[in-house]
Design a protein around this nucleic acid. Sequence first.
DNA 1: GCACATGATGATACTGCATATCACTACCGG
DNA 2: CCGGTAGTGATATGCAGTATCATCATGTGC
Lengths: 144, 144
Amino acid sequence: MSQAQTLRPDLIAVLEDQGYRITAPRQAIVQLLEHKQEGFTAEEIIADLDSVGRATVYRTIKLLLRAGVVCKLATMDGAPKYSLSRAEHHHHTVCVSCGAVGEFRAATVERLLRGLAGDIPGRILGHRIEFYITCAACLPVDSN
Amino acid sequence: MSQAQTLRPDLIAVLEDQGYRITAPRQAIVQLLEHKQEGFTAEEIIADLDSVGRATVYRTIKLLLRAGVVCKLATMDGAPKYSLSRAEHHHHTVCVSCGAVGEFRAATVERLLRGLAGDIPGRILGHRIEFYITCAACLPVDSN
DNA sequence: GCACATGATGATACTGCATATCACTACCGG
DNA sequence: CCGGTAGTGATATGCAGTATCATCATGTGC
């Protein structure tokens, strides 16, 4: 079983299930995203799809966010990055050299963090962990 | 060594030591920050100090960043927050209700994260952890 | 004390990301 | 076929942050 889409339950279908219409622009965007799993900015999408207006791109991204299909990642330089979220809960690695965004999961981390509740004043609702790395692709170049 | 200034070694002196001039606007900004340890946005400072121009506020914040006196925190809604960094290395708590930013340290976390090196492809340069919480002040209101 | 070089300032213009507006189009149900 | 609603995109607008630049302050050498 498991159509082996492994974890991508046909993104378009997800939208359809939530009552949204499947339009050409939305299909174009989703299709593009499927090839850009690396982490992308809104402006990137806009640049790649001349046929789709800015407004629609931003609207669609919000749609996908609400649908839980993509996740948002605030970056230091202002422009947030988005990425298709395959796993339920995960964290990000950001290459400081090329900006590529990756995902990882580590159960040990989650367990530990839960144990921290006592150190934190107030009720914990969620957390975020990011690792700043030099990614494999940039390593040879970067480390001289 | 370690003058034990506990952790705030006279912010103005830090700037002076780095060869910057101590001017009225800079003093005004630093003084304001000392009272706003909660985490603040650039625009907040600008609004509070009519006598100081936008440009100068942004310039001074960058100065303080470079001097390591304040630290930057990317937020989901775009406008980054800054806070006086008292401890060397620390992480943040962000109240989703009122936006207040706090700091905490947890050696256990650091130790664990170092152990994760194997799970992360590439060279780890740094990390960031944020907890999203409902802070003590907001709890009664927020939780119904 | 004066002149000059340099640092700092702030008003303004500008850039870039994101949202709001709004007229128009596509689609769906009757 | 018709009307209503969802969706679209051009444009205007908002807002954070940066760049420009004339002006002012500071410090130094004389």
